[in-house]
Design a protein around this nucleic acid. Structure first.
Lengths: 193, 193
DNA sequence: TCGGTTCTTGAACGAACGGTCAGAAATATC
DNA sequence: GATATTTCTGACCGTTCGTTCAAGAACCGA
């Protein structure tokens, strides 16, 4: 029929994602995206549309993969205190390995785009609601098992855990200090009693 | 001697600050800064230097005023549990009033500039350390008075409180829901026992 | 081998950006 | 009131950005 593509769309999207994660949406230039993906602008536009749509697809991929994995663990019916703590430990571990301090695509761009592109920002921020629900379900499960005191209000605690998570993601990017994040994880563990 | 200035430097700086807070450093254009301050670019450059130095002065002002007030309360020798909680309540209150969801200049720009201008980002992020120290001192004071359990490690708790604060500032900008932040404040109050 | 289709490539475009500069305007001093 | 000095103003500059487009390259089916 015709000439086949010379690149793997998923791999290109992942590379673009990393650029957006490090530089932000507006901060990521097409030159950088070209260099990171190894693709010419024309190919990027042909395959993904304009920069905004490329970002949207990268964001969708991030929600499906990186965040999706975290949420999936949390959303299993058996998830309880262990899984909540594992999520925070994972945050601290990832931040310690993230030498480029890219942080979290959702957190970074929700802040960057809050005033500039409300649609994008809202789409990014909506994942906070998913975490709230997943945390709340895990808290209820943990309370039913006696892992967490029943005196906690599940929704309130879930919202608080979401706040803690976002705070850790800020520090992961702005002030990367493994010990700091480890202290935060330990404190979360104390809260979950 | 010569023609006097027709503007109040502090007032202009405050207006510029609000623009940076809402739009970010790179997102704030000189057109917007002109419109917000009522000054021509030439006057801005004459008075403050280039955009980066204008931002630096706005940041310094923010550290002195908005953040300075919060830190001052926390840094008084008598500060204890009440002052810590008042800070978080103030965060929630300010976020509820902040209909443009500007959030916090330091948080926004520390994230935006982490990869783009490490010097600026570092300068912004350094305030986190001040909060860590101030929180730790207040925690120790509160423990000495029996307001908080002595079993808490002051530094660990201080770091955790800083994380919680940053998380609330993310939500203030990305997902402004007064009830959410109130729940977070209530949860912090439970932690401080 | 050839035609048709898709992908790739390089160059170029208009727009918006930060920054600059010379002249007009305005004041305090003499 | 003349002058010197500073501030203000409008136009302009070079750069960089996202985006487009036409021509070249590569492939599949006939």
């Amino acid at each position: 029929m015709a000439r086949p593509r010379e690149f793997d769309e998923e791999q290109v999207l992942q590379r673009a994602l990393e650029v957006f994660r490090a530089k932000g949406f507006e901060g990521a230039t097409l030159d950088e995206l070209e260099q990171a993906t190894g693709l010419h602008r024309g190919s990027l536009y042909g395959a993904f549309g304009d920069k905004r749509r490329l970002f949207l697809k990268a964001l969708a991929r991030y929600l499906d993969t990186a965040l999706g994995e975290r949420l999936a663990v949390l959303e299993t019916p058996q998830a309880g205190r262990t899984e909540i703590l594992a999520l925070f430990q994972g945050l601290a571990r990832d931040a310690a390995c993230d030498r480029e301090r890219k942080g979290c695509l959702v957190t970074n761009c929700a802040i960057e785009l809050a005033d500039r592109d409300p649609d994008l920002a809202c789409q990014a921020a909506r994942s906070l609601d998913r975490f709230e629900r997943a945390f709340a379900a895990a808290v209820r499960q943990a309370q039913a098992r006696g892992e967490i005191a029943a005196t906690h209000d599940p929704v309130r605690l879930a919202r608080f855990l979401t706040v803690c998570m976002e705070g850790m993601l800020v520090l992961a990017r702005a002030r990367p200090d493994p010990a700091w994040l480890d202290d935060a994880v330990a404190a979360v563990a104390e809260v979950l009693r």
